[in-house]
Every structure is written in structure tokens, then in C-alpha cells.
Amino acid sequence: MSVGIVVAIAVLLSAGLIIWFVRRRRNSGSTLRRESKGPLERIRSQDFLLNSVLVSSKKEHYSGDRSNDDLELPLFDFTSIAAATENFSDENKLGQGGFGCVYKGFVEGQEIAVKRLSKNSGQGTKEFKNEVKLIARLQHRNLVRLLGCCVDADEKMLIYEYMENKSLDSFLFDKAKRYLLDWQKRFNIICGIARGLLYLHQDSRFRIIHRDLKASNILLDGELDPKISDFGMARLFGQDQTEANTKKVVGTYGYMSPEYAMDGLFSIKSDVFSFGVLVLEIVSGQKNRGFYYSNNELNLLGHFWELWNGGRALDIIDSSVGDSFSESEVLRCMQVGLLCVQERAEDRPTMSSVVLMLCSETASLPQPKKPSFCLARKPETDESSTVNQVTITTLDPR
């Protein structure tokens, strides 16, 4: 046999071995990928159905942001979520609003809360996109964590960490459960909300105005630690931006600042106003909305103001708290709450000042001025509807 034939045979055999090896590696990799693929498969933002929404967050709105290509979002498949919630059974339903329903579920041994948007809720779709755009980028112990989302034909779902104790209002305004909130727990809740709001306004890479801070949007974990939730109405601000205006006012009456409710003007100070209302509700165990005192002339803020000026502020503390509380701490919280609900936005403190005043026993607190909305009245509206347990109100500025 000639040397040329031997060389040719050797070359063919080598080529065959190389082809066989490459195909085996390729098949092995495909099998491995199929086996490792699960409900928490990560996809890059440019492959995500809502890419156009994510891209709409222009870089000039914030500094130091990574590119959209670096943003990753966990994606759950519909089959896994349906199985996790036992096909969205009533037994697993945690709540319901204008947006749709929230269900409890289990995925890979982890408890989750599934916010399933109603197919007929146009506003819910907008909230879905907004929440994906904002909260997916935020990480703080006092903000609810978004674990991922699910988009399948008409189905749109947000998947959150499960909060064992649901929302603050389910404790605060419940005659049986309110006794579980002693003063120390209430004070910790107030401070936790303040830290979460400070992060949104100042410490995160983005300046975010929540616009719907209220008791039902504060979730409580197993230790009753608070987490701010529901960013469907939130707005992203630039680092140098201080306020914005909208023709359509969104939020919940009773928590809205006067400049926002009447003129559509919102800023970090409108969130501060909502926080102040929350503080006074936590201290008193009473809702600002629906609370009327002295022949329906005063709401909760007005009643607080009257007692404060009369030196009887402690008269309004929730009786379920009992006697185990620090008077100076309670009075400090009341004073901070009243400072936050002052009528003029420029008179209200920033959240950094609020956190300092709450955490320091030696900090000097200014005397509050008269709060807004002391009279039991409602703004004139052309249209009012409820979406996601949020009152959407359109007003004509005068």
C-alpha cells in the first residue's frame, strides 16, 4: 500500500473522529440545557416582551445607570405558576382589587405571591409595565421584592416574595389584630417605612416618587417588619428634578397632599405628606379617611392638631397599645407626623430629616404649622373610579 493511500485514510479517520466528537459535545450541551431549564429561567431584557417599556426609561433620567442590555429579569412560565397556585384556586387567593387577584403559591419550595392582572383591566397593564420598569431595579429591606413576572398571551402576572402577615391595614384597623401591634412594633414599622421612602427619594440610583403610599400598600413579613409595595403609580425623577405636574391625579383620597389633589403637582414632598398621614394613623389606630370629629367638622389630621395645641396629644393614642410605651417617643412620632402633613410643601421635612428626627432622642424638632385638609370635605371631581384599590381622580385645576 502506497504512502499516499495510508495518509489519505488517516486524514479521513481523523476528520470522522473530530466530527463525531463535535456532535457529541453539541448534543450533550443541548441535553444539559433542557434539563437545567426551569420556571426561573433568566432572559435578557432585549428578549423580553416589555422591552419597549424598559427602553423608555431614558438614560438622562438618572445618572450611573447600567445599560438596558445588562438588566436581567426572572421569567416564570404560565404552567409553573398555575401549578404553584393550584390553578389559581380560591383557597390560595390572598386578595382582590380592580387590577385582578393575588394568590399564594409555592415554586421550588419557596412561598410566592402572584399578582394576576385582570384581562379586562387596561389600567392594570399600565401598572404592570411600570412596576417591571421600576421595582425590578430596586433592592432594600423595606421594599417588597419582585421575584419575576409571567407573560403568556393575555396573561400578565407579577411574582413577589410572600408576606406572611399581609398588609398593615389588616392589623391596624382590625379590632382583634390591632392588639398584636404594641408600641414597639408600631414604632419599628414607622421607622422602617421612613427608611424605605428615604431609599426611594435619595439613596437609590433613581429618584422615585411612590404616589400611593397608604396602609394597604405596606406589607408585613413574619416579624412584622414593613415593606413598601405596589409601584404601579410610581414615577421616576431625574437627579435634578424636584417636581412634576399631571392632568390625571392618581392616589387615594385621605393620603394625597393638597397640591397634588388640587393641582396635580407632585414631588418627594407629596410622598412625605402621605407618610405623615400613615404615622398619625399608626399612632391612633384610626383612618384619616372616614374619621370625623366634632359634628363632622374635623378629620383625623384636624383632630390631632386640636389635641396637640391643647396639650392633650396623648389622648388619641390607640388604647390597644396599652400602657407600655415611651411618652416622649410617642410625642416625637406625633410631632414628626404633623410636620409631614403641613399644608405648604416647602414647610414639610425631607425623608432624611424625618429619619434623623425619629431615630435621635436629642434632635431638635420644629413646631408644626396647621395641617392641610383639617375640614371634613372632599375635592370636586369630574370622574372617580377605583383601580387596584386606588382612587383615580381627574380634577380641573381652578
Score class of each variant (00 low, 15 high):
Trp308Thr: 14
Arg23Gln: 07
Lys119Pro: 10
Val151Pro: 02
Leu54Glu: 01
Arg332Asn: 00
Gly322Thr: 11
Thr393Lys: 11
Lys269His: 07
Gln202Pro: 03
Leu138Trp: 00
Leu298Thr: 11
Leu40Ser: 05
Glu164Arg: 08
Asp77Ile: 06
Lys287Trp: 00
Val330His: 01
Ser45Leu: 09
Ser80Val: 10
Leu54His: 08
Lys93Arg: 10
Val355Ser: 11
Ile208Leu: 07
Phe88Met: 08
Leu158His: 09
Arg33Thr: 06
Asp174Gly: 05
Asn288Glu: 14
Ile209Val: 15
Arg34Phe: 14
Ala376Ser: 07
Arg145Thr: 08
Ala176Met: 03
Thr350Phe: 01
Asp174Thr: 09
Leu172Ala: 02
Leu339Asn: 05
Ser364His: 11
Ile268Met: 01
Leu172Trp: 04
Phe206Ser: 00
Met256Asp: 04
Val114Met: 09
Ser121Val: 15
Arg137Ala: 06
Leu198Phe: 00
Ile209Ser: 09
Ser360His: 14
Val53Gly: 12
His210Ala: 04
Ile18Arg: 02
Thr246Met: 11
Lys119Arg: 11
Ser63Ile: 08
Trp183Ser: 10
Val321Leu: 09
Asp318Thr: 07
Asp169Glu: 02
Ser270His: 08
Tyr103Cys: 14
Gly124Cys: 13
Glu223Tyr: 02
Lys247Val: 02
Phe173Ser: 10
Asn68Tyr: 14
Asp65His: 12
Gly322Trp: 05
Gly196Lys: 09
Pro379Gln: 00
Leu278Gln: 06
Glu380Met: 13
Phe275Pro: 14
Arg34Lys: 10
Asn142Tyr: 02
Pro39Glu: 08
Asn120Cys: 09
Gly196Asn: 05
Ser328Gln: 00
Ala234His: 04
Arg141Ala: 09
Ser257Glu: 05
Leu180Arg: 04
Ala261Cys: 07
Ser56Thr: 15
